[in-house]
Amino acid sequence: MFTGIVQGVARLPFLESKTNLTTLGLDLPASTREGLTVGGSVAINGVCLTVTHWDDEAVYFDAMIETLRTTNLGALKQGDEVNYERAARFSDEIGGHLMSGHVIDQVILTRREELDENNLRLEFTVPDQWMKYIFPKGYIGLNGCSLTIGEIVDNTFSVYLIPETRRATTFGEMPNGTAVNLEIDPQTQVIVETVERVLAQKKDESSDS
């Protein structure tokens, strides 16, 4: 599990694409590597990946075909920068919201609005099937970052970033048109789907009577 509090931005000095598999080498700082083990989990742009090995240059992960298709990891190039967060431990403070690192789709950054020197508003366009899980003031996971939803209009939603979030993540200089990984709050998803199932069952029972 992850907290959605991105620990920093790291560069990809190594990227090797094979058939239906990409190996990513992430330049994690020494403090983040401390205690890291083969088989450990790190969220890269919100995607939970497993450490395979490391050397002096990078920590390495493999991304399979479904991960490459569903997330923006498939579009990464050597030298790109990504958000990272190591898996949460029982003693860690949960400052965001619990996240699984299982990205369901991508959304597109369609508008950047500098409100003032301390506030940045970002607006994203969402595939229609996911809008039922997105509510004002609800939680959302974007490239591994736990954020609170602002306004919702049609199939778009907005978030507001403080200076620290801009500094610690790739959102600070992200251009319009960028594809961003989306993770829905699992509790919201369960509630919505349970209500849908109950309503559908009642409708069936009513039509049978």
Score class of each variant (00 low, 15 high):
Phe124Met: 03
Ile149Leu: 02
Lys132Asp: 04
Thr37Ser: 08
Thr32Lys: 07
Thr3Tyr: 06
Asp62Arg: 04
Glu193Gln: 13
Arg86His: 09
Lys18Pro: 01
Ala43His: 12
Asn20Phe: 13
Arg167Asn: 08
Thr169His: 11
Val192Glu: 11
Val190Tyr: 09
Gly40Phe: 00
Glu81Tyr: 14
Val59Pro: 08
Val107Ser: 06
Glu193Ala: 04
Met131Ala: 00
Ala63Phe: 10
Gln7His: 04
Pro175Asp: 02
Gln129Leu: 13
Thr178Gln: 13
Ile162Lys: 05
Arg69Gly: 01
Thr178Ala: 14
Glu85Tyr: 13
Glu205Gly: 03
Glu123His: 01
Glu183Pro: 13
Glu151Ile: 01
Pro163Asp: 05
Glu123Gly: 00
Arg197Lys: 13
Gln106Tyr: 10
Lys132Tyr: 09
Ile191Pro: 12
Ile140Trp: 01
Val42Asp: 02
Ile149Pro: 02
Val82Met: 07
Glu183Thr: 12
His102Gln: 06
Ile184Glu: 02
Glu81Asp: 09
Leu161Asp: 07
His102Trp: 06
Lys202His: 12
Leu73Ala: 04
His97Pro: 09
Asp208Ile: 14
Val107Asn: 06
Phe171Val: 03
Arg197Glu: 12
Leu28Glu: 08
Ser209Tyr: 07
Ser209Thr: 09
Lys137Asn: 14
Val59Phe: 07
Gly95Ser: 02
Tyr139Val: 04
Asn119Tyr: 01
Gly35Glu: 12
Leu122Met: 14
Ser209Leu: 09
Pro175Cys: 04
Thr178Cys: 09
Met1Ser: 12
Thr148Arg: 04
Val103Arg: 00
Gly39Tyr: 00
Leu147Phe: 06
Leu98Tyr: 11
Gly144Leu: 07
Lys132Met: 09
Phe135Met: 14
Cys48Gly: 01
Asp204His: 12
Arg112Ser: 04
Asp55Thr: 01
Asp105Leu: 08
Asp55Glu: 00
Leu68His: 03
Arg197Phe: 11
Pro127Tyr: 11
Val103Glu: 00
Ala200Tyr: 08
Met99Tyr: 06
Ser209Ala: 07
Lys203Ser: 07
Asp56Ala: 15
Leu182Gly: 05
Thr194Ala: 14
Ile94Ala: 02
Arg197Ser: 14
Ile104Trp: 02
Met174Ile: 10
Asp204Arg: 15
Glu34Cys: 08
Glu81Asn: 11
Leu120Gly: 01
Glu93Trp: 13
Arg11Asn: 10
Ser206Trp: 13
Val82Cys: 06
Thr19Gln: 15
Leu28Val: 09
Lys18Val: 00
Asn119Thr: 07
Pro163Arg: 08
Val59Asn: 05
Val107Tyr: 09
Val103Asn: 00
Phe135His: 08
Asp56Gly: 09
